[in-house]
C-alpha cells in the first residue's frame, strides 16, 4: 500500500485487530465443522475455509509469501486431494452414522481441553518473551528475497532434503494407490483378451 501513507497508518492502528477477530470468529466454527460435521465431504470443503482464514492470519503477520503458498498448496492442492479421496471412498456409509463414537467423545474432549489449557497457561505464565516490538516487519519485497536467499544458503540442505522427501512421497503414494488386480480379475482380463482376439479374427473373416 505504498502511496497511501495516511491510510496505511490508520489501517495499522484500527483495522488489524478487528480483522484478526473477524478471521478468528469465522475460523473457529469452520474448524468445528471440520471435525464434527455429519457430512464428511462438506467438512472437506470447510477445511478449505479454515486454511484460507489461516492464510489471512499469515498476511496479518506480514508473511505474504507464506500466505500465498498456503492458499496454493494447502487451500487448493491438499484439500482437493482430500475431497477426491473422500469421493473415491464411500462417504455415504459414514453419512448415516455418527461422526464419533460416544465412547470416544469424553476422552477426546478431555484431551482437547487439557492440551489447550497446557498451551494457554504456558503462554500466560511466560513473562520474558524476547519480543522485538520496536522492529517493523520486513516489506513484502524484502520478505520475499530474504526467504529466497535463506532457502538457498542457510537452509539449502533442508531444501534438498525436502525435495527428496517429496520425491519419495510421490513414488510411495503412486505405489500405494496403484490398484493391483486381484487373481480373479487377472483371469477375467485374460479371458476378455481372448474374446477380443477371437472377435478381431471374426472381423477379419467378415472383411475377407
Amino acid at each position: 500500500m505504498e502511496g497511501f501513507p495516511q491510510l496505511t497508518t490508520w489501517a495499522q492502528a484500527n483495522v488489524e485487530q478487528a480483522v484478526f477477530y473477524l478471521l478468528a470468529v469465522i475460523a473457529i466454527p469452520l474448524a468445528y465443522g471440520v471435525v464434527c460435521d455429519r457430512n464428511i465431504i462438506r467438512s472437506g470443503f470447510l477445511l478449505i475455509g479454515v486454511f484460507s482464514t489461516i492464510a489471512g492470519l499469515f498476511i496479518l503477520l506480514s508473511a505474504q509469501f507464506l500466505a500465498l503458498a498456503q492458499i496454493m498448496i494447502y487451500g487448493v492442492g491438499i484439500t482437493l486431494v482430500v475431497v477426491i479421496a473422500l469421493m473415491l471412498t464411500n462417504p455415504k456409509a459414514e453419512k448415516e452414522s455418527m461422526p464419533a463414537l460416544s465412547i470416544h467423545k469424553g476422552p477426546a474432549i478431555f484431551v482437547a481441553c487439557f492440551l489447550f489449557m497446557c498451551v494457554y497457561l504456558a503462554l500466560r505464565s511466560a513473562e520474558n518473551w524476547p519480543v522485538k516490538t520496536d522492529v517493523a516487519a520486513l516489506s513484502a519485497a524484502e520478505n520475499l528475497s530474504r526467504i529466497g536467499q535463506s532457502l538457498l544458503t542457510n537452509y539449502s540442505f533442508h531444501f534438498e532434503f525436502a525435495s527428496i522427501l517429496l520425491l519419495a512421497a510421490l513414488i510411495g503414494a503412486v505405489m500405494l494407490a496403484k490398484a493391483e488386480p486381484a487373481v480373479h480379475d487377472l483371469n477375467e482380463l485374460s479371458a476378455n483378451e481372448d474374446k477380443l482376439k477371437s472377435s478381431e479374427r471374426a472381423d477379419d473373416v467378415v472383411k475377407v
Binding site: 471440520v34 464428511i40 482437547a112 492440551l115 489447550f116
Partner: peptide, 17 residues
C-alpha cells in the same frame, strides 16, 4: 486449532477425517 484437531483425531471414526 490444535485442541480442535486433537479432538477430531481422537474421536473421529473416518480415517480421512
Amino acid at each position: 486449532f490444535f485442541a480442535i484437531g486433537a479432538y477430531g483425531m481422537v474421536a473421529s471414526r473416518n480415517a480421512v477425517r
